[in-house]
């Protein structure tokens, strides 16, 4: 049944000048679907890792301790002002190579993991900026009230500052996650088999670049739409009734 659906699709697209014949070839079809799956995995792994790192960096930046804030600020500035591709090359071509040499084969970090690490760290820095702005937007008088109620510093951070900062920073965080999804495409630069890479493999044989790019654009559009919808749902759930009137 799938065969006839796919044939129908190829026939439908041909009058438009679009050649989707690759879907009829089992090998290429499987490769493309695998690419879709790898991209999904990259997104699913990078999103939580970036959020965790973002919270940690934000907590470090607002801790007020110089031995934490200075190196973290340097890291933030470095990550924000250099291209992700170059960061990925430095991580994979340099660090990975060094690790492999030291461990002499048996390097546990796969290229997939390097992509997740670099992309998540890059976006974590933007998350941290948004969260830091959110933390600093919590009115000082609210914190004073919490202190007068005998909350400890840690409890104030966890129960008052972070929940409010999260609500303030949520739109920016969702924007960052949409960017993160798009950024996973650079995985193709180090031959991680995401959808972009598999498409390059296919179009270098069949020369149907436009057709594949359209599919990729649709797929990323779908992924970013899912993230935006999830973000809006979360915004509604965390809404503070009557706030800001």
């Amino acid at each position: 049944m799938t065969e006839s659906l796919l044939e129908g699709w190829v026939a439908f697209a041909r009058p438009f000048g679009l050649n989707y014949a690759f879907v009829l070839d089992a090998g290429e079809r499987v490769a493309f679907v695998r690419g879709l799956w790898v991209t999904l995995q990259l997104c699913a792994a990078s999103i939580p890792v970036s959020l965790v790192f973002g919270v940690l960096i934000a907590a470090g930046l607002t801790s007020g301790r110089a031995w934490l804030t200075r190196p973290l600020t340097a890291l933030v500035e470095l990550t924000r002002n250099t291209p992700t591709l170059v960061q990925l090359y430095c991580a994979f071509l340099v660090l990975n190579m060094l690790i492999s040499q030291k461990l002499e084969g048996g390097n546990p970090i796969t290229p997939f993991m390097w992509v997740v690490l670099v992309v998540a760290l890059h976006k974590a820095v933007f998350h941290a900026e948004a969260l830091r702005a959110g933390i600093e937007a919590v009115p000082g008088v609210t914190l004073e009230a919490a202190r007068s109620l005998a909350f400890s510093r840690g409890e104030i951070l966890w129960r008052v500052q972070l929940p409010l900062a999260l609500r303030f920073a949520l739109p920016a965080l969702v924007n960052n996650l949409v960017d993160l999804v798009k950024m996973t495409a650079i995985a193709s630069a180090i031959a991680v088999g995401d959808v972009t890479y598999e498409s390059i493999m296919i179009w270098s044989q069949r020369d149907n670049v436009l057709e594949l790019l359209l599919l990729i654009l649709l797929y990323f559009g779908l992924l970013t739409w899912v993230v935006s919808v999830a973000g809006r749902w979360l915004e509604n759930r965390l809404r503070m009734p009557g706030y800001g009137q």
Partner: peptide, 29 residues
Amino acid sequence: IALRKRVGFVFQQYNLFPHMSVLENLVAA
């Protein structure tokens, strides 16, 4: 903290936690 459990403070600007309901504000501490 032990001292502040014995001394209640009410501020000019009320300073309730906006992300918690009235009841949650009261039971948090």
